[in-house]
Simulated scan of single mutants.
Amino acid sequence: MSTQQHPGSAGRPFLTAVVDDDDLRRNALRQRLDRLGHASLVFESSEDLIAALRAGREFEWMMVVLQAGSLQVQLKTMLGLSRAPLLLVALEDSVGILSDIDKSLLNSGRVDVVPLSCSDREIEWRFQLLMQRKTLFPLSGDDLTWGPYRFDKGRRTVWINERRVALKPLEFELALEFFRHTNFLVTRERLYTEFWGGSFDSSKSRRLDVCVSNVRRKLDLDSGSGFFLRSVYGRGYALNEVVPHAGQTTEDAAQMLRSFGTGGAEERASSYGR
């Protein structure tokens, strides 16, 4: 993925996520957004955009070129992870895909559709319409979802599927920090400074360990829940999404994470360190 930034009509860039697996078409869309004054961050797949959203990346709006195959789950995940509206771009041979998308999604007010052949003016008009809907019809609640976990920021409540989990305010914010940085190591120094302020003092770090332990226990982040929160010795913590290989159960994959140490998270520690 790559980015481009230019002043928007309000004197600041509108950061747009663009998803398309075709290089030429993706670059052409990016140039059109550039002419309209929208900064763009491009992704080759829906999965790449979802990973960025889970890592805490925010966008003013999202543009996804419809491809063959089902996008139903991916689109719902994008809208669940972000409050940004979504503009679907239909190719001549992909119009039929729209019939496979849940009508409640298309009628939610957060999603609109344009053909690839539409004018730049049409794209800008659709963008303005989506942003107006966002202002006039704000979402109920402020939910963020990762797999079976749903965080209601407005009520500071966590749900695991249909089970409500009671967390203290600090535990809620700490858990949300881990999920926003799924598959990344978050250093102890960063966490201590973020939630307790001041410089990190190893002699007082016990309070962080206790809070992390409570989050792990209350949210079942050491079982077969699909996510595993682990300590990285001397560094910090990493919340990993557990992806079983062929023939494995989720618990088997979690056990491998317990056994193999830091894995890929340590390699990315610099992004979320001091």
Rank of each mutant, 00 (worst) to 15 (best):
S2D: 11
H6Q: 12
S9I: 15
A10T: 13
R12C: 06
R12W: 12
P13T: 13
L15R: 12
T16H: 00
A17W: 02
V19M: 03
D21T: 01
D22M: 05
R25P: 00
R25H: 08
R25N: 10
R26G: 10
N27M: 12
L29K: 03
L29T: 03
R30G: 13
R32W: 06
R32C: 09
L36I: 06
H38C: 11
H38L: 02
A39G: 15
S40P: 04
S40E: 04
L41H: 13
L41E: 15
F43R: 10
E44K: 12
E44N: 14
D48K: 12
I50A: 10
A52C: 08
R54Q: 09
A55E: 13
A55T: 12
G56E: 01
R57S: 09
F59T: 01
E60F: 00
E60L: 05
W61C: 05
V64S: 02
L71E: 02
Q74M: 07
L75Q: 03
G80F: 04
A84Y: 03
L86A: 01
L86K: 05
V89Q: 08
V89H: 00
A90D: 08
A90P: 06
V95W: 09
V95G: 11
D100K: 13
I101N: 02
D102C: 02
D102S: 14
K103H: 04
D112F: 03
V113R: 02
C118K: 05
S119D: 12
D120Y: 10
E122H: 11
E122C: 03
R126E: 13
F127V: 14
L129M: 08
Q132V: 04
L139E: 07
D142F: 06
L144H: 06
L144K: 04
G147N: 10
G147D: 13
G147V: 00
Y149N: 07
F151V: 07
D152N: 15
K153E: 11
G154R: 11
W159F: 14
I160P: 06
N161G: 05
A166N: 11
A166I: 12
L167I: 08
K168V: 04
K168L: 13
K168W: 10
P169V: 08
L170P: 00
L174I: 14
L174M: 15
A175Q: 01
L176Y: 12
R180D: 09
T182H: 09
T182K: 08
F184Q: 01
L185W: 01
T187K: 02
R188G: 07
L191W: 07
L191N: 00
Y192K: 02
T193M: 09
T193P: 04
F200R: 01
S202D: 06
S203T: 11
S203N: 09
S205F: 04
N214S: 15
N214V: 05
L219Q: 05
D222W: 15
G226N: 04
L229M: 11
S231H: 14
S231Q: 12
V232R: 02
Y233M: 07
G236H: 05
E241S: 09
E241C: 06
V243L: 14
P244E: 03
A246C: 00
A246W: 04
G247S: 10
T249D: 10
D252Q: 13
A254H: 10
F260T: 15
F260R: 13
T262Y: 09
G264W: 08
E266A: 15
E266C: 02
E266P: 00
A269L: 08
S271M: 13
G273Y: 06
